[in-house]
Each structure stands twice: as C-alpha cells, then as structure tokens.
Write a protein that binds this DNA or RNA. Structure first.
Length: 303
DNA sequence: TACCAGGAGAGCG
DNA sequence: CGCTCTCATGGT
C-alpha cells in the first residue's frame, strides 16, 4: 500500500471511510492551526484534534498532503475540505501581495500559512471573547465554555473527551453569571446579548454570507461587543471575505513599524491604507503580517 | 511586580 | 469627532 493512503479505512462497496488524504502544496498545518484564528485545536501525540460541525477529527501533515481521520465513516469530506480551504491556490494569492520588503519578509517567515473557513457562530463568539486577551487565555476560556455547555462528541480511542462548541440556543439560555464563571469577565454580557440577538432572529448569520462586505460588516457590528476589529475577524475567518483586514494591536504595530516609521497614523488612516495597498487578498496579507510579528517577537525573546 | 493582551462602549470636552 | 477611561482575568 502506498505511503499516504495507509490511514484510509475504506469500505469499497459503499465508499464510506474514516480517513482521507488531501493533496496540498504550500500548506503549513501547524502554523495555520496555531495562528490565533481558531482556538480549539490541540496537538495530541502528533495529531491536531478538533471538532468541526459536530464531528471529531484528527489531522496531521503528510508529504504534500493533509491526512485526516474521523470516528464515524463519512459519506463526503466537503465539510473538511471547505474548512481547511485545501483547494485554494496559495501561490496565486501570494502574487497579489504588494512586492515590498516587509511583505517579502513576512511571506518568507510564514511560508505555508493559510486561512481557515470556520463556522460563523463559533468564530463570532470566540472573537467576542478575544478582546484584550492573549491567545492562550482565549483558548482556555473557549475550552471551558465548551466543556461546560457543549454537547459531547465521539472521540477515537485513546484521545481525551471533547465537546462541540455550544449552540446559540444553549448560550442564549444561560445567565451572565454562568458565563462569568467561564472566566470571560466583562465579555460575558456581550456574548449573552449577542446569542440572544441571533436567537431572536434580529441577527441572521446565514444571511450575512449573501451580503456585500461593507453591509456584512455593519450587520455584524450590530451585535453588542462586536466592533470593527472583531467584525473583520469574522468576515475573514468564517465568511471568507478576503479583503477584510482586522487591525489589532499586533497588526497596528506592524503597519506603523513597517510602513509608517516615525509617524503617528490614526486608526482610520491605517484602515484606508489596508484597503488600498494590499490588494484583493488583503486579509491574507494581514494574517502573514500578524504571524510574522509574533514569530519575530518569539525569536527576539530567545536571543 | 508591573505590564499587557487578536477591543468595545460610554463619557467627556 | 477624537480622546480617555473602564471593564475582568491571567500570562509573561
């Protein structure tokens, strides 16, 4: 049996199986799953484990491929192909970046970094919880929330138990005290009010996907606790609006240091710059700058 | 210990 | 508007 297909557990007559090999080029799975766009992936004995659309899945990087396995046999794997965006032409995206030194450095330092296509509710809720929190803390809050209020999913033997991300209805039915007990502090009333806004039908997350980006952003920003930055994260990480360019403290620093040295550009100016300078895949460029700043700081701390 | 974290919203002049 | 302050918690 060829290497790379060894994890396939096929049922030849039905086509059902619990394993799948996705061919990919220029895909750094480790960097992507740990890059602060999704908060639920855990590395367990060489595999990244997570829950997508209620299904437990384990991923590992193969030779120019991503090897996936689930607990239950799958009739199709579109849900995972879509989440991982394995069909994206990464080389093509890179050609749309501005050809300047900062971007060349960022691309060189983060080769294979990708954007995922997450569930809108999980993404929105997670980023409401992200404000002025470090990524490790966001991971802790989200996992506590799932542990307490998510539904259990089937896990492969030998792996730690895990729950799905709690539904809108589940969160909407909780109290602020329940949420504060998950260590989210002042973000608790925001998450609760947003869940109830969605449950009431006043905010329709499925409908946001059909809107032009500017309207979609305004729609998301109706939700309490959702400003420009969090809205842009959801537009980029869940809805695939590749022009969305979240400006957080890291990206702010990157833009100032790399493009506006010895000046004090205002946030408004940086937003305008981000939408005119980085091209149609500005959001991708943003993720490269974000990750570049973080790995650069890590090396600086060691040295 | 002191500072800071993938911010948002309210209050102020 | 544009600036400042507060909000809750814990990592480094």
């Amino acid at each position: 049996m060829a290497k790379g297909t060894s994890t396939l557990v096929g049922h030849p007559e039905t086509g059902l199986n619990c394993g799948r090999n996705f061919p990919v080029a220029s895909y750094d799975l480790d960097a992507t799953l740990a890059s602060g766009q999704a908060f639920r992936w855990r590395l367990h004995k060489g595999e990244w484990t997570g829950v997508i659309a209620g299904r437990w899945v384990a991923l590992r990087a193969g030779d120019d491929s991503i090897i996936a396995r689930t607990v239950l046999p799958q009739t199709d794997w579109n849900w995972l192909a879509d989440y991982l965006q394995v069909e994206l032409d990464m080389a093509g995206v890179l050609t749309t970046f501005p050809d300047d030194e900062p971007m060349r450095n960022a691309v060189a330092a983060c080769r294979g970094l990708r954007l995922l296509r997450q569930d809108p509710w999980e993404c929105l809720a997670s980023f409401i919880l992200s404000s002025t929190k470090q990524i490790v803390q966001i991971q802790q809050i989200v996992s506590l929330l799932c542990e307490r209020y998510g539904e259990a999913v089937s896990v492969a033997p030998g792996f730690p138990p895990v729950n799905a991300f709690p539904s809108v209805q589940k969160i909407a039915g909780l109290t602020e005290a329940d949420l504060r007990a998950c260590k989210m502090g002042f973000r608790a009333p925001y998450l609760l009010a947003t869940a109830r806004l969605i449950e009431s039908g006043q905010l329709d997350l499925a409908n946001v996907a059909k809107m032009p980006v500017v309207e979609a952003r305004a729609e998301l920003m109706q939700a309490p606790g959702v400003g420009r930055k969090i809205a842009d994260c959801v537009l980029l990480f869940a809805y695939g609006f590749q022009s969305a360019f979240p400006v957080d403290v890291w990206v702010m620093r990157a833009l100032k240091d790399l493009y506006f040295p010895r000046r004090r550009p205002k946030l408004k100016r940086l937003h305008h710059f981000s939408q005119t300078y980085f091209g149609p895949n500005a959001g991708y460029a943003q993720q490269y700058l974000f990750h570049y700043m973080r790995v650069k700081k890590k090396y600086a701390a060691v040295a």
